[in-house]
């Protein structure tokens, strides 16, 4: 199978930060398959276990840590753990899609703050810390995995949507601010996804699935090759952009 050599992450070190959800193992596997050493930062032990379990045996030794990135001190701790094992941080992937659904009139301030904190504040903190390393080495690739709800509203989704729009704005801002340091910052926007293998016919029993132009839910593995490209050296002229992989939702009324 001929493959362009540009889709390679050989020799690169990647930090994968997951704030929640089921996609991190797939993202880790894509990065490892392209040759990157993956260091995972997860809020929960079971997520970290799933990430490390998804990596091929030869890619498991690069470490990982369970941490809630809720302060500068916590983030500094993660960075020093990382630096204990690795010299360079070439790639940072943030999956900031911790979510809950609730009517806007019933969202308590604590829950609102928690989702903004897990998704936006944590992503900012680790981007700030890793960005400093990238600026020092004059190279870096950052990819934020976000939801298409960065661009649209959804009933009961206000807190989550706001956090995703925040991540998109952060993507643009860091791209503009750090472009001169050879750092590229992009986002992958996903639609309705499932990590389970559900037959298409069964999925289509759901009205919402029939609303997606491609009439099936997305799979985390759908974005693996795109993630690899956006993390590669070859992705040099794309920055500050979201690429939506959502079955056509964004193009659709």
């Amino acid at each position: 199978m001929p493959l362009l050599p540009q889709y390679s992450l050989a020799g690169k070190t990647a930090i994968l930060h997951s704030a929640g959800g089921d996609d991190a193992p797939f993202l880790a596997r894509a990065l490892a398959e392209a040759g990157a050493a993956v260091f995972a930062v997860c809020r929960r032990q079971d997520t970290l276990d799933a990430v490390l379990g998804a990596l091929p045996a030869q890619s498991r030794g690069y470490g990982g840590i369970v941490a809630a990135l809720d302060s500068e001190a916590a983030t500094a701790g993660v960075i020093s753990q990382f630096q204990f094992l690795h010299e360079r941080a070439d790639i940072l992937v943030n999956d900031g899609r911790s979510m809950f659904a609730r009517a806007a009139t019933r969202i308590g301030l604590e829950d609102w703050d928690e989702v903004q904190s897990r998704n936006v504040r944590a992503t900012f903190l680790i981007s700030q810390a890793v960005g400093a390393l990238m600026i020092a080495q004059e190279y870096g690739r950052i990819v934020n995995i976000i939801s298409g709800l960065a661009e649209r509203g959804m009933i009961n989704g206000s807190a989550f949507s706001v956090s995703q729009a925040g991540l998109l704005a952060l993507t643009r801002s860091l791209a503009v601010e750090w472009g001169q340091h050879n750092i590229r910052v992009n986002a992958i926007g996903v639609g309705w996804t499932t990590a389970d293998d559900i037959p298409v016919e069964e999925q289509r029993q759901e009205q919402l699935v029939r609303y997606i132009p491609l009439r099936q839910k997305g799979q985390p593995r759908d974005i693996g090759p795109l993630l690899v490209y956006l993390c590669s050296e070859a992705c040099d002229y794309t920055t500050g952009q979201p690429v939506y992989v959502d079955g056509g939702l964004n193009a659709h009324p």
Partner: peptide, 26 residues
């Protein structure tokens, strides 16, 4: 172009892939 032509982009449609040096972002 290769990504968009390949089955790696099968779940992507109606979308744009921008390469503009960050011009549109900033």
């Amino acid at each position: 172009a290769v990504f968009l032509a390949s089955s790696a982009s099968d779940y992507m449609t109606g979308e744009t892939f921008t390469l503009d040096g960050g011009g549109l972002a900033g």
